[in-house]
């Protein structure tokens, strides 16, 4: 029995061609979609072709992309965050109210907002773990709680629906320089969130694919029981992912606050779905365990291009949401088709 006879070589598994290896990557569908959308608006919208507008398109994409990247990480880890949209507003309002109400340096408000955002993320993750409820439900609860808090606290502190202007407080200029400045690269004016978006994409992609923690993210999303059985700290991993979303919400919230000097308390509602859609277009599975950070960033780019392309083409912008819905479904279908082709199954 101890001599093992070699079974005839299994010739069913051929080596895959380089093309199908490339096509099997999760972000390919998004790239194809991005090229298609770019080509479409290139053809129909003259303003889309102007180099100067590249900065505008990238800026529009970055305000979605910063969140899409962190939401994609969370989705690969198998969870949703429906509070992500209003959490951005909560973060901005926290900074504005704290600094204005106590007359503090703006940076103190920024710091409190960061703690607040991370705490909201940690709370989402902890509640998920404690209750065992699906994250869809837990974060739906947080979504409503935060929405109410945003409106009520703004009413109490600022006496209206928008936060008070911060521009005469200490540290405003430096905070604006960090979160809402812009720089010029040749003919293109690049707003700073574009840079943050790129950095965040690179950091998150490296984290996911090249670090131990990334391996854990895939595992807790793919099969959390299996992950636990081999010693992956499932709860810690998930809480950290929610805190990552909190960090993204803080970064975007600070940008919006210092870009416009104040924030509307009802802002951000509905954006959580846009982040999720961008991640899904980028190849994330709703069931977790699979997806791509670069894909999510490209998904955000598709949004940015569409949003401005429709305007540049002179179409009625009311169609934007319809276009999004079509994009969502077709990109998922393309992703599925490409995946099946590439895996040859």
């Amino acid at each position: 029995m101890s001599t093992v006879t070699t079974t005839p070589a299994d010739d069913r598994v051929g080596t895959r061609s380089a093309a199908s290896t490339v096509l099997a990557r999760p972000e390919v569908g998004a790239l194809i979609g991005a090229i298609a959308v770019a080509a479409l608006f290139f053809a129909v919208a003259p303003a889309f072709r102007s180099v100067g507008n590249v900065g505008t398109i990238l800026y529009g994409s970055s305000t979605i992309g910063i969140m899409a990247v962190v939401v994609a990480l969370l989705m690969i880890g198998g969870e949703f965050d429906l509070s992500a949209g209003v959490a951005v507003t909560t973060s901005g309002l926290t900074a504005a109210h704290t600094a204005w109400y106590f007359g503090l340096n703006v940076w103190a408000g920024v710091g409190v907002a960061l703690l607040m955002s991370l705490a909201i993320g940690a709370f989402n993750g902890w509640l998920l773990h404690k209750t065992g409820l699906p994250s869809f439900l837990v974060t739906l609860g947080t979504f409503f709680v935060l929405q109410g808090v945003n409106l009520a606290m703004t009413r109490v502190i600022a006496g209206g629906v928008s936060s008070n202007s911060l521009n005469d407080l200490d540290g405003f200029d430096s905070a604006k320089a960090v979160f809402a400045s812009s720089l010029t690269l040749g003919p293109v004016e690049v707003k700073i969130p574009v840079i943050y978006w790129f950095l965040l994409t690179v950091v998150a992609a490296v984290l996911l694919l090249r670090s131990r923690y990334g391996n854990w993210i895939f595992a807790v999303g793919g099969d959390s029981a299996a992950a636990r059985a081999v010693g992956v700290p499932v709860v810690v991993t998930k809480i950290a992912l929610f805190m990552g979303v909190g960090f993204g919400a803080w970064l975007l919230g600070m940008h919006l606050l210092f870009e416009y000097n104040n924030l509307q308390s009802g802002q951000g509602v509905g954006n959580e779905f846009i982040y999720i859609i961008a991640a899904v277009i980028g190849g994330c599975l709703l069931t977790g365990g699979y997806g791509s950070i670069v894909g999510a960033a490209v998904g955000a780019l598709i949004f940015g291009m569409t949003q401005l392309g429709i305007t540049y083409a002179g179409w009625n912008p009311d169609w934007f949401k319809t276009f999004l819905g079509v994009m969502l479904i077709s990109s998922v279908l393309v992703n599925m088709y490409v995946k099946r082709k590439a895996e040859g199954r």
């Binding site: 391996n215 595992a219 099969d223 029981a225 081999v230 365990g289």
Partner: peptide
């Protein structure tokens, strides 16, 4: 169930 994550 082997404790393997199928998509990895």
């Amino acid at each position: 169930d082997l404790a393997l994550a199928p998509l990895m």
